[in-house]
Design a protein around this nucleic acid. Sequence first.
DNA 1: ACAAGGCCTGGGAGCGCTTTCAAGCCGGGA
DNA 2: TCCCGGCTTGAAAGCGCTCCCAGGCCTTGT
Lengths: 350, 350
Amino acid sequence: MGSVTIYDVAAKAGVSIKTVSRVMNNEPNVRPVMRERVLAAAGELGYSPNLSARSLAGSRSFVIAVFVDAALTIDHWQSERGADYLSRIQLGATLVCRDAGYHLLIELIDHEGPQVRQEVAALLAALKPDGVILTPPSSDNAVVLELLDKAGTPYVRVGPERAEGLGPRVHMDDVAAAREMTEHLISLGHRRIGFIVGEPRYGASQARREGYFEAMRARGLPISDAWIRQGDFTFQSGLDQAKALLALPDRPTAIFASNDDMALGCIAALAEAGLMTPGDVSVAGFDDSPSARFSRPQLTTVRQPVAEMSSVAAKLLIEQARNGAVSERPVDELLPFALIHRASTAPPPR
Amino acid sequence: MGSVTIYDVAAKAGVSIKTVSRVMNNEPNVRPVMRERVLAAAGELGYSPNLSARSLAGSRSFVIAVFVDAALTIDHWQSERGADYLSRIQLGATLVCRDAGYHLLIELIDHEGPQVRQEVAALLAALKPDGVILTPPSSDNAVVLELLDKAGTPYVRVGPERAEGLGPRVHMDDVAAAREMTEHLISLGHRRIGFIVGEPRYGASQARREGYFEAMRARGLPISDAWIRQGDFTFQSGLDQAKALLALPDRPTAIFASNDDMALGCIAALAEAGLMTPGDVSVAGFDDSPSARFSRPQLTTVRQPVAEMSSVAAKLLIEQARNGAVSERPVDELLPFALIHRASTAPPPR
DNA sequence: ACAAGGCCTGGGAGCGCTTTCAAGCCGGGA
DNA sequence: TCCCGGCTTGAAAGCGCTCCCAGGCCTTGT
């Protein structure tokens, strides 16, 4: 308990606490000799400035909060969906924070509950984080954004889906990714391409469908309503919708699912129907989740730069806190995706 | 920004700040009338006590930290392994924290690096968390435990592997779980049962192997060295080791893998070899990861109460901080596992 | 040579809260 | 009636740090 304070260091180094403070904060205008002496004293004592005191006295808190949707999280507890996306977000941010001497706080918010206003306001008042990383779907929640603005807390929306103008964001181009994947299927020779839409609450679902449409239209290929199936991002929905597609009189030769879990469901459906992937029907996914490599055949998919997005977000936030200044122009970082070609796609059977 | 302080509430309610403090902390000895008045004022003003000020002035910080191994995390960034275990740990703790008005901090520590001492000491000094949740493999790190003890910071080891006496822990019985799964296979009629050991750095790997041995010995079944293969918890290692098992002259009729990823690898190996699961060879896993349900056939596995463990850990820590007292007897919570019977296990072919 | 300005350093005032302690009030027992 | 003790309240003293500002020193310009 008798922890080391700035006074102990000051006494040991024979300087005032203000000088110690300057050294600990890397402020200029300290003679190198003094700096050395303070550093030595701090080292010997094993001193580390108390975060609470720092944030109480100063204007920074050295804390970045990640807002995660509570409902989604509770869902993950027992649902079949993994928390892969969220853990990747966290991963990128945690690493950046550690290197910058910052700390990552995970906060669950009920972004659609009746209490959001109060909940978020209380959180911001209590924590005074230097920045907030908003994950979908709360990255599109108007109330949350409004409160953040009102509190003057900088934030970055990671992988948001609604248009610009809602604040800084770091994202990827879902439309382009879906378009390129569709083009890839077309270039393999596919003409009848089925598409499984994701959970409609997510803007990404619309974006990916849009990309699919764009590619199909650009090539002048017919789009049958029957080929567009509504899924919900779960394996089971992929399985069900794939079955429906296979039951079609003029069944697709390729299926593009809006995420990997559903794509895996498609592969399972094909296997059940006695069809080969990609021999009879090609399957493409989206996300490059870990399980994409566990399936046989391995899944052709789109790699999202999730960890990168959050690490960019964290960097932006920390930099902003350091400068104390709000950036002039709106932040809108677009990170590159990558098509991962594995074994689940091939030319259609002739 | 012009945030609401305790003074504002006190002024509005016409009481001293001490009374407001009492109300906010649910302390006794406040007249109901006063309590009401303060609550009303706080509500109207949207007041929420500042965390930094609270922890600076008081003895509690309202923060629970989770120590996660940095190396492991960086591994996850691009490796094939999902961060499933860690995200489940977090999930349980986050929910408990939210309900208790606590906050969850994720801290990466390089638990084997040369800097651990300094790193952990600095973290504890800076954060002064009310409690720390230790995840494997750092839950077994002697240096970390020592520093925690020295700092007087309460901690709970979640899913630790080394024996008791190292401090409070919440865990499950890996040995019993592996034994029961092995017994299940035996009771189905299997006699030649292969076992794929996990990454040796994890104590759980030894425990699971031990459970397998116990069951085999208890039934007086022969254990061939050739049936015990060393894996590393990855899909690929499961695939490789399963192939090796299948190449054996007297190949096993069942394979028990130490985790689901490896079990999935086994199923893939079987398929490649033209063998049916479970028709020709049964496969059992361990973890009940999300992907266990995505495989065909779905995986028979052991469900670990991971989220439950961390939620119990968080509860213990928060309760302890509330009482300000250290519990008398050593905490050693054993949580129940569950065998999940799915389709990948069946009687051996006759 | 003198003033003007820059570089270092320390003093002092809080940040918003909890804690310690003392004071005021009430009722009941002697 | 007076005193003791429990219940309520508030005043004051920090928690460990940052921020503002003043003061000393040394450099530079003229």
